[in-house]
Structures are given as structure tokens and as C-alpha cells.
Design a binder for these strands. Structure first.
Lengths: 110, 110
DNA sequence: CATGGATATATGGATGTCCGCATGTGTTGC
DNA sequence: GCAACACATGCGGACATCCATATATCCATG
């Protein structure tokens, strides 16, 4: 993992918030990100795909849905970077939107 | 300090190496960065100025020279981010160039 | 005040990034 | 097979970023 590329990935608000949300929620599908961030589906999908191409996150199809999580092989220093921002900023606003989402696939599928 | 802007600053190799060097060396003048990184003076100066405008570093003129250091008011989380990369990557190559530099202002001025 | 060294900035071109919109692909269920 | 949903991608425009080159500013010294 190249630090320059990693930080470039984090320099976009959409990607950063997605990553902090994954740090907090383990695994989410695209429509949950769309709802929590209140952004268009193509926009979220493109950023998640970008993070996948960089090896920062991992995707997994579950039927209709595609779930994204932080890549298990993410270097320790990269994880520490995300943790530092997470502790300082939090994602409570995003989590609130998430729990208010009707028909969450991650929940109904369990 | 906005995380997005901070990470955007770190997404450039020149700026990131300057910051890691400041983490290791406390305070350096522009010509020392130029020598350690082996880059053009305008290029280094522009990037350091960019970091100053963002409040990430602090400059101080000492006669002919301008010294740059990490900004004392840098938030803890930002410092932790730099530390994480520093511990993982190191800057030994840059430090070697630095000690090999003839007539270092930081040394002869002390 | 002229000179030289250290640093900053102006300019213009090449490249990269991000977005909205439209459309394509894959999956489920009837 | 077809309709509906979830997700991905192609495209073009607006905008930012980065660089090399040239030039300007600032300061110490003679």
C-alpha cells in the first residue's frame, strides 16, 4: 500500500466517510452508503469501486447486493490512520441516518 | 484542521516527504529540503508554502534562510497520522542525503 | 548601492479528478 | 422471458493540480 495513493484516496469526502462508516459498521451494501451519505448511487458506486481497485476495501456479492468492507489485508499503519480520524471526528451523523433507513438489507438478510 | 484537506496535502510525494522529514528533524530550511529530496527549489518552495497556507507547518525567517517546522498547533490526530506513516516507512534515505549536505545552514548557524 | 545567495511567485501547458446524466450489467421473482 | 431492483460504467464538461521555466523579492555583505 503506497502512502501517497492511500492519502489521495482519503482526500475525498465521499470516500473518507465511506471508510469511517466501514470502520464503524464492519460491512455495508451500496444502497446503505447511498442512504447514509445522501448521495447519488453512481457517485457512491464509483468511489467504492475506486477504493476496491486500490485494495483498500473488499467487495462481496450477496445475491442482489454488493457488500463492502475494509480489506482484511490493510496494513496496520493505514488502519491506524483511519482510527485516528475516527476517534477525532466520529460518524454519529452517518450512523443516525443508517439506523433510520427503512428496509435495510444488512438487517433483513440476517 | 479539515481531514479531507489534510489528506489531500499528504497525497503528494514531495509534501509527504517534507513532513516526515520535519517529524524527524524538528526544523529545516528550504535549501536543506531541496538537497535531501533532490528537487528544484521552486518546486519545494511551492509545496512548503502550500503546507504553510493550510496551517500544517510554520515558517520562520532567520536572516537569509526560512525554516519550516510542523505547526505546534497541529491536532493530535494529524500528528498521529504522520507518526503512523513515519514508523512504517521511515526517512533514512532522506536523512542520509541530509547529513551528506555540505555547509548545512542549520548546523553552521548553531 | 551593487552583488550574490536564498526564497518566493507568475505563467502556461499537460494531466488528473470529480460530477451529473444516461445507459449497461447482473440478479430476483413472477 | 420480462419487469423491477441493485449496482456498475461510459461520456463530456468543469475544475483542480502539478510541473518547468523565467523572473521577482528579500537579505547579508562588501
Amino acid at each position: 500500500m503506497n502512502p501517497e495513493l492511500f492519502f489521495r484516496a482519503l482526500s475525498d469526502g465521499t470516500r473518507l466517510r465511506c471508510l469511517l462508516l466501514m470502520l464503524s459498521e464492519e460491512s455495508l451494501c451500496v444502497c446503505e452508503f447511498v442512504h447514509a451519505l445522501d448521495l447519488s448511487q453512481p457517485r457512491v458506486s464509483r468511489h467504492l469501486g475506486h477504493l476496491r481497485d486500490l485494495g483498500i476495501v473488499q467487495d462481496e456479492r450477496r445475491g442482489q447486493w454488493v457488500h463492502y468492507r475494509l480489506h482484511p489485508g490493510l496494513p496496520a499503519w493505514a488502519h491506524e490512520v483511519l482510527q485516528a480520524v475516527f476517534l477525532a471526528e466520529g460518524v454519529s451523523d452517518l450512523r443516525q441516518r443508517l439506523v433510520a433507513m427503512p428496509n435495510r438489507p444488512s438487517i433483513s438478510c440476517d
